[in-house]
Amino acid sequence: MWLTLLYCVIGGAALLFALFSWVIPYIVQYHPGLAIFWHDRIEERVLDTLTQSTRPQRLLAAVQKNATRGDPRSVVLAIDQFCRQKEWAMNVGDEKGCILDSVVSEVNPGAVLELGTYCGYSAVRIACLLPPHGKIITLEFNPDNAAIARQVIAWAGLEEKIQLVVGASGDWIPKIKEQFGVKTFDLVFLDHWKDRYLPDTKLMEECGLLREGSILLADNVICPGTPDYLEYIRNSPRYKSQYFKSHLEYTKVEDGLEKSVFLG
């Protein structure tokens, strides 16, 4: 009897492990709603409980273990490897990151604004492509994420290029000119709360932070999606927009980036 019970327990544990580690992650790779729900609501909470740590803390540990201090590209690679092999995270990711890289290289911006730092992945990715005089201001609402991002940025050796500001975008955008002496931004990367894309874009217009030729690059416009932002940006005579089809970070779910040129 006890042997049978032991076999049942072992078999059940093995089944749960297989479901958690392989079966469910494979299935959610192709389903937009399930992908975000699984990775953000289930997997993260389970691993937080088991490890008594947070996903950003685990990501930072992977950087410190696998990346070379002072080498931004090795930091990006370490995060991508962590997210593909260990644990999904909501960075722009390697696939869409290549699109981001191409836009940064094309614009060659002197002043960049990033809305949504998370753990610093995209800030590092952008900063290492900037010209010598170029700088990026990145806004992060969550102070815990910001604390991790500062360490990731420091590990990449980019503290002089990246100004990390903690607080709500709606509070900071009107104060940017006064606080940082920035007249306008050459490039704005939107990757924060999706319901803030449109109001923050209108706020940047009102505050005069966009000049003729400024580029807005918005992530996750399909998954989880920003329909109100897309409707505005694609129909406004003040913008010329282009969609870059890709996939939700580290999955096979369709997603993309919307590049919009401000026409004045």
Rank of each mutant, 00 (worst) to 15 (best):
W2H: 06
T4M: 06
L6K: 08
L6Y: 07
Y7H: 07
C8S: 14
C8T: 13
V9G: 12
G11R: 01
G11L: 00
L16Q: 06
L16Y: 05
W22V: 06
P25M: 08
P25I: 06
P25E: 03
I27R: 08
Q29R: 10
Y30D: 12
H31G: 06
F37T: 09
R41Q: 09
R41L: 06
I42C: 14
E44T: 14
E44H: 10
V46E: 08
S53N: 03
T54Y: 01
L60Y: 00
A62M: 05
A62V: 09
N66H: 15
A67E: 13
T68L: 15
R69L: 14
R69A: 15
G70H: 03
D71P: 13
V75Y: 01
V75S: 02
F82S: 01
F82R: 01
C83T: 15
K86A: 14
K86C: 15
E87N: 15
M90W: 05
N91M: 11
G93A: 10
G97V: 12
G97R: 10
C98S: 11
L100R: 12
D101C: 07
V103T: 15
P109Y: 00
G110T: 13
A111K: 14
E114H: 06
G120A: 02
S122R: 01
A123D: 00
I126P: 10
I126F: 14
C128M: 13
L130W: 13
P131V: 02
K135E: 00
I136G: 03
E140A: 05
F141P: 14
D144G: 07
D144I: 11
N145F: 10
A146Y: 06
A147H: 11
I148R: 09
A149I: 02
A149N: 03
V152E: 15
I153D: 06
A154S: 13
A154H: 06
L158N: 05
L164Q: 08
V165Q: 13
A168D: 07
G170V: 03
K175I: 04
K177W: 05
K177T: 03
F180C: 08
V182C: 11
K183M: 09
T184K: 08
F185N: 02
F185T: 03
D186Q: 11
L187W: 08
F189L: 02
F189E: 02
D191W: 00
H192W: 02
W193Y: 02
K194P: 06
D195G: 06
D195H: 12
R196Q: 15
P199E: 10
P199V: 10
D200T: 06
K202C: 03
L203A: 01
L203Q: 03
E206I: 04
C207H: 06
L210W: 03
S214K: 01
L216I: 15
N220S: 04
P224I: 05
P224D: 07
T226H: 09
D228I: 01
I233S: 10
S241E: 12
F244I: 04
F244Q: 12
K245S: 11
S246R: 08
E254Y: 12
L257V: 07
L257E: 04
E258W: 12
L263G: 08
G264N: 09
